[in-house]
């Protein structure tokens, strides 16, 4: 789907990163040079220094992280659900080996422990090397990293969590097991009664089917599910969707105004207006979810 192209131009670097949708349209980013390229048993990992997006990481040829707009993604993946909960303490992040979601949840001082279950250690090592600002949460004593398949971990570990964040990067990513109905049910079992789980559900336009399927599977397991969206410059579709799910639907009515103030201070994108707006869905997404 995505690949790198090299061609000669009159001046400057000739290296372009292509992030394409079904090979038909997409986003191209001009890179100064590649700074890292290696392969783990799971995927190919590349990092480029680019002109307009800063450092960019590609996994299996897909752009998954840019210095320029990763804040938007990680803030939106975490703060809306963290601030709907009264006192989120025990957090589990499935995937998220880049440390972005970890950094954001650690901004909430209610948090007592965060478990990150990342399958690919090389991703974490690479991010620590090239995205130092993003990965600073790994040094926090509340953080614990487990290198395992998220499905295996939740299945074999009986701990309950207040918030579970499923931060996988791509429907074709390394962990196919995170897209099965069985996985959603295991997640539901590990969630505290008043907890919230949030899934990244990719683009609601290009991967609409994925959002709808997740919505359906989750609706059968949780009392209430709430999709929300944000715009993402480095997604070739420009838009990213999330699905928050709770066993007790009342939690979605809550907003922790008192805790919000300190969080907003250290955010680049998220604020209370964005919070409200994110849950306002355009007609085509509402229609998709009803279908």
């Amino acid at each position: 789907m995505n690949s790198l192209i090299k061609f000669t131009t009159e001046s400057g670097s000739s290296l372009w990163i292509k992030n394409l949708i079904h090979g038909m349209s997409g986003l191209t980013i001009r890179a100064k040079h590649a700074v890292f390229c290696d392969s783990s048993p799971f995927q190919k990992i590349e990092v480029f220094d680019t002109y307009s997006f800063g450092m960019v990481m590609c996994l299996g040829g897909t752009v998954v992280l840019t210095e320029y707009d990763s804040d938007i993604y990680h803030e939106m993946m975490t703060h809306p659900v963290m601030l709907m909960m009264k006192k989120p303490q025990r957090i589990c992040i499935i995937g998220g080996g880049d440390g972005g979601c970890l950094r954001e949840v650690l901004k909430h001082d209610t948090v007592s422990s965060v478990v990150i279950v990342e399958i690919d250690k090389m991703v974490t090592d690479t991010v620590k090397r090239f995205f130092s600002d993003l990965s600073k949460g790994f040094d926090d004593p509340r953080a614990q990293v487990v290198y395992d398949d998220g499905y295996n971990y939740l299945k074999s570990n009986m701990d309950k969590f207040d918030v579970i964040i499923v931060d996988s990067y791509d429907p074709g990513g390394p962990v196919g097991s995170l897209e099965t109905a069985d996985f959603y049910s295991i997640v539901a079992q590990r969630l505290a009664d008043d907890g919230i789980v949030v899934f990244q559900t990719y683009s609601p336009t290009v991967n609409g089917e994925f959002l709808r399927n997740t919505y359906r599977s989750a609706s059968a397991l949780f009392q209430k599910t709430k999709p929300y969206i944000c715009s993402m410059h480095s997604f070739p579709e420009g838009i990213c969707s999330f699905l928050a799910c709770a066993k007790n639907g009342n939690v979605f009515e809550n907003f922790e105004k008192s805790r919000y103030e300190s969080i907003a201070e250290c955010c680049n994108y998220y604020n209370d207006d964005v919070h409200t707006g994110a849950f306002l869905l355009p007609q085509h997404i509402k229609r998709l979810l009803r279908s």
Binding site: F42, Y147, D149, N152
Partner: peptide, 8 residues
């Protein structure tokens, strides 16, 4: 899928 399990 198999390689993932093997690596783990």
């Amino acid at each position: 899928d198999i390689c993932k399990k093997a690596a783990l």
